[in-house]
Design a protein around this nucleic acid. Sequence first.
DNA 1: CGATCATGTTGTACAGTGTACAACTTAATT
DNA 2: AATTAAGTTGTACACTGTACAACATGATCG
Lengths: 194, 194
Amino acid sequence: MGLLHDEGLDAVSMRRVADRLGVAPNSIYAHVADKAALVDELIDAMLGTVSTPTDDGWRERIERVMRDSRGALLAHPDLIPFALVRQSVGPNALRLGEVTLTSLREAGLDGAEAVTGLQVLLVHTIGSAAFEAGRTQDPEPAARSRRGRERAVDFGGVTAELSDPISRWSGDVVFERGLAWLLDGLVSDTASHD
Amino acid sequence: MGLLHDEGLDAVSMRRVADRLGVAPNSIYAHVADKAALVDELIDAMLGTVSTPTDDGWRERIERVMRDSRGALLAHPDLIPFALVRQSVGPNALRLGEVTLTSLREAGLDGAEAVTGLQVLLVHTIGSAAFEAGRTQDPEPAARSRRGRERAVDFGGVTAELSDPISRWSGDVVFERGLAWLLDGLVSDTASHD
DNA sequence: CGATCATGTTGTACAGTGTACAACTTAATT
DNA sequence: AATTAAGTTGTACACTGTACAACATGATCG
């Protein structure tokens, strides 16, 4: 985690980690199966900073879990893509998933629907964080295309309208609006079912 | 794209691509700035298979764009994580974004809100595809943990309830339900604004 | 026409990556 | 005291992305 925080995920190689610990690179394989497994543990360690909410209302609890998880994700942007694809379900992810699931049941969703709701919320939270992290960081990997190949230009004037506000927009809006829409949709769906 | 389809993204190295083309590895750098830029072009090429919808209603058009994009994404699962983080906005992504944006305006959203709506829809579509792809593929990278470290067990019985249905569930449900909730939330929000 | 120049290709090379294998040391258990 | 388990190490393999200088080719222009 220290290495990740100091120099980013690219610096987290087996050799660098081993250096940091003062051991040989292979020693790590006695504690971790794989590099992927190491990243999985990093992800769950990151979620360890998110506390279990104790609010009264189910909606407030869900909003807090998702908002805080988003904060933890954005604190370590390099990890976000892996959080979506490799859902390792470590103890911390499990803890937060549990709270959300019971909150959704409190909201009136039955077993299968609550699970679907949790998954949709996860997709939105992690997905919007990934989207924002992509916009935020590394703007200059190799100075765009080779010889100004002018792709993504003049597609009818909508281009400026589309790609411009995207580039300088607030990720909070996307997250908060999407979260509100989803929670609204969840309850209205339940109400119509009854 | 052929190499990606045949052997997955890991096989798409500069050397392998060069072999496939019968040239030296460095030659590729005359056409592509970076390996990341190459992946960006792969992503846009993948979106090239998604056709622009011509349905009457705005909702049908949006649903078709998102559903078809999801299909294209799931056809090349290795690319999905990068589609969220590196939004390169190639010509095809631009084309589809344009249709969605005008459809959202047709639904009654004004400039800034339409852009937010598009972004939320993108996050959900790509995010749920990433979520599903993570569950679907590579179940055995190195046979779990080293010595059965029994993590993610007995968290109060909810574990089975939570991790079990997640492991064998249909990704369609998550995508369709989330999409419906979002579109419902979008229009109801607009209605209340008027 | 000949010279300049942009475009593309190549060989060589560097610094790094994940991880397999066998040997060894230490601590715990029988 | 003997056996087993857990952890560490050195060496090694087969790769990776890409920088640099040199070379070939076709097009452009005086």
